[in-house]
C-alpha cells in the first residue's frame, strides 16, 4: 500500500472507532431505557431514533449542516467559543456517529429485553443497589446485544458517505474516508484506483461482520454449555 492508501485506511478506521466509542454510553443508556420504559412516548422516541436508518443519509447530513453551520443554532454557539465543526475531521466522526447510533440502540435494546427483570429483583434482595445490579447482572447478560450493536455501528461508520459528504465535505488528507475517496476517483475516471480502494473497504467490512458473527456464536455457546 502507498502512504496515501495507508493514511486513508487509518483515518477511516479511526473515525469509525471514535464514532462508535462516542455513541456507546448514550446508546447503551437509550437502549436500556427503551427496553425497560413501559409508559407513554415509547413509540415516538423509538421512531425518532430509527429515522437515520430510513432517511436518505444526505437528508441527515443536510440537517446536521444546517444545525452546525456558522449560521445554524448550534454552530453559532460553537463559533462563539471558537469551535468549528463543519468540514473538519470532527464532522466526519459526527456524521458517522449519528448514522450508526440507531443500529447500536436497536441491537443493544433487544439484548436488554432478553434479560429477565426478576433477575435484577433477586440481585437487589442480595444487596445490590440498582446501579450495581445493572453492572453485575443486566449488562453482562445483555453484553452480546451491546457488542453486536457496537460492531454493527462500527461497520456502518466505516462506509458512511451521504451524511459525511454534506457536513464534512470530501477533502483529501483532511476529511476524506475510503468511501469518499472511491467516489472521487470514480468521478475522475480513475477506476483502477477506485476498485483497489473498494477491495480494501470490502476486506474491512468482511472482518467487522465476521467478528460480529463469531461473537454471536461464541457467546451463545458459553451460556448453554
Amino acid at each position: 500500500m502507498t502512504d496515501d492508501t495507508t493514511g486513508l485506511v487509518l483515518f477511516t478506521v479511526k473515525v469509525a472507532v471514535v464514532a462508535t466509542l462516542i455513541i456507546l454510553p448514550p446508546g447503551v443508556a437509550a437502549a436500556y431505557a427503551l427496553a425497560r420504559w413501559r409508559g407513554p412516548g415509547r413509540g415516538f422516541v423509538d421512531t425518532v431514533l430509527a429515522l437515520p436508518l430510513v432517511l436518505p443519509p444526505t437528508a441527515v447530513g443536510l440537517v446536521l449542516l444546517e444545525l452546525l453551520g456558522r449560521n445554524g443554532p448550534l454552530g453559532r454557539i460553537l463559533d462563539a467559543v471558537g469551535v468549528e465543526v463543519v468540514f473538519t475531521p470532527g464532522a466526519v466522526v459526527l456524521a458517522s456517529a449519528v448514522m450508526a447510533f440507531p443500529l447500536l440502540v436497536r441491537s443493544a435494546r433487544s439484548g436488554f429485553e432478553e434479560v429477565d427483570p426478576r433477575l435484577v429483583a433477586v440481585a437487589r434482595t442480595l444487596g445490590d443497589t440498582p446501579a450495581r445490579a445493572f453492572f453485575r447482572v443486566t449488562l453482562p447478560l445483555a453484553w452480546r446485544g451491546v457488542a453486536v450493536g457496537a460492531l454493527l455501528a462500527f461497520s456502518r461508520a466505516l462506509g458512511e458517505f451521504g451524511a459525511t459528504v454534506l457536513v464534512a465535505g470530501n477533502i483529501p488528507g483532511r476529511t476524506q474516508t475510503l468511501s469518499l475517496a472511491i467516489f472521487q476517483h470514480t468521478q475522475l475516471g480513475q477506476d483502477a484506483r477506485a476498485l483497489q480502494l473498494a477491495g480494501i473497504a470490502a476486506l474491512l467490512a468482511f472482518v467487522a461482520v465476521y467478528a460480529t458473527e463469531g461473537l454471536t456464536r461464541w457467546r451463545g455457546r458459553r451460556v448453554r454449555a
Binding site: L119, R124, D128, T129, V137
Partner: peptide, 17 residues
C-alpha cells in the same frame, strides 16, 4: 430498598444468574 432489607428471597423458579 430491597438491598437494605436483608430478606433471603428464593423465587419459585430459582432464578439463578
Amino acid at each position: 430498598a430491597p438491598e437494605a432489607r436483608r430478606m433471603g428471597y428464593v423465587p419459585q423458579d430459582a432464578l439463578l444468574f
